Simulated assay, not measured.
Amino acid sequence: MTGVTRWTGREADLLRQAMRKKGKDFAELVGVNPRQIPRWKGRGETIELELDNQAALDTLLAQADPAVQQRFAALLTERAAVEHDERAEELLRADSRTRRHPVDGKVMTLVEEGIHLCGPDKRSVWLEPFLIDVYPTTNEDYARFVLATGHRPPQHWPGGRCPVTLATHPVVWVTWHDAIAYARWAGKDLPSARQWEKAARGPRGRIYPWGNEPTAAKANVAETGIDATTPVFRYQSGVSPYGVFDMCGNVWEWCATEEEPGNGRYELKGSAFTSPFERAAPSLQNAANATMKDNDTGFRCISIA
């Protein structure tokens, strides 16, 4: 498991819990004064640790037993799923391009018209302006759709009800037809592969949403060792130039673009928690039959600007 993107007092305390260590013993492993440990815990996310402490925690996590790493990943995911994320909300409030959709209530952001560099060869492509969901469609979003339309719920919902612990995780086990049904209910559409890619890479054709550096810790991919979906707002350091989250990792996302006209297979973008980081670049292509559904496949929507 790689180091976390940003070590604060919160992540340090979760690692201590995962290792099942008392404060003094944990301080000795990190190489700090034992008085630092309760201070970190008390300050939580308001204190970003010194670089040498972050490096020590990275090493400690990387060398930990797999059981410890799994517990740490589970604690991170559980906390993120039930807590309000102020940092994500601040990002949205600061961005004048965002607005809330009147039907499904999701925050969308504007992708301006113009040329963008597309595909591995960075060819120039013109697109009209559009709005795209800042986050993938969550289980909570999909539950409102199911309640309003009577549409079949995903197979992983116990008794057909959205699990509270997965409310802010991307919905999965949805076919392309399920995704289209949601989009039509909301008065939206699925993005074309080119629209999705522009929202992920920006107009200048970054390799990844955050830039050109291959940093697996900025996305929920196989190398993180989480082996499950995570809350859609978790990877703030991995947002695209337009402020769009989870364009690498977490879940593959259905697009409106057919692989070949009439063959019933539609493009998927972004990779997933099951995929190696090498599959995460938004320019890469993937496709599946419209009836396919899996535990790592979801979607997000667009609308006309």
Rank of each mutant, 00 (worst) to 15 (best):
M1K: 12
G9L: 02
D13P: 03
L15C: 00
Q17C: 05
F26P: 09
E28T: 01
E28C: 05
V30D: 14
V32P: 08
N33K: 09
Q36W: 08
Q36I: 06
I37N: 05
R43L: 15
E45F: 03
T46V: 00
L49I: 08
L51T: 11
L51V: 13
L51P: 04
N53K: 06
N53W: 07
A55G: 11
A55N: 14
A56V: 02
D58F: 10
L60I: 04
A62K: 10
A67I: 09
F72K: 12
L75Q: 15
E83P: 03
D85E: 08
E89I: 01
E90I: 08
L92G: 10
R93P: 01
R93F: 06
A94Y: 00
S96F: 13
R97G: 15
R97L: 10
T98P: 07
T98K: 15
H101N: 07
P102A: 09
G105S: 13
G105H: 13
K106A: 09
M108C: 03
T109F: 06
L110P: 00
V111R: 02
I115K: 04
L117M: 06
L117F: 06
K122G: 09
V125A: 10
L127A: 13
P129F: 14
Y135C: 02
T137Y: 04
N139L: 09
A143N: 06
F145Y: 10
F145R: 02
T149A: 08
G150M: 08
H151R: 13
P154F: 11
W157I: 09
G159A: 10
G160Q: 04
T165F: 07
L166G: 00
H169I: 01
P170C: 11
V172A: 03
W176Y: 09
H177Q: 14
G187P: 02
L190C: 02
P191Q: 07
P191K: 02
S192Y: 03
Q195E: 11
Q195R: 02
A199R: 03
A199I: 08
A199Y: 07
R201W: 04
P203L: 12
G205K: 00
G205T: 03
Y208L: 13
N212I: 03
A217K: 08
A219K: 02
A219T: 01
E223Q: 14
T224P: 11
V232M: 05
G238T: 03
V239M: 13
P241C: 06
Y242D: 01
Y242T: 04
D246F: 01
D246R: 04
M247Q: 07
V251A: 04
V251K: 00
V251Q: 03
E253L: 06
W254P: 00
C255I: 02
A256W: 05
T257S: 14
E258Q: 05
E260H: 07
P261G: 00
G262D: 05
Y266R: 11
S271M: 10
A272M: 07
A272Q: 00
A272L: 05
P276M: 09
F277D: 07
S283H: 14
Q285S: 15
N286A: 14
A288N: 12
T291L: 15
K293Y: 15
D294A: 15
D296W: 14
R300G: 00
R300H: 05
C301I: 01
S303N: 06
A305E: 11
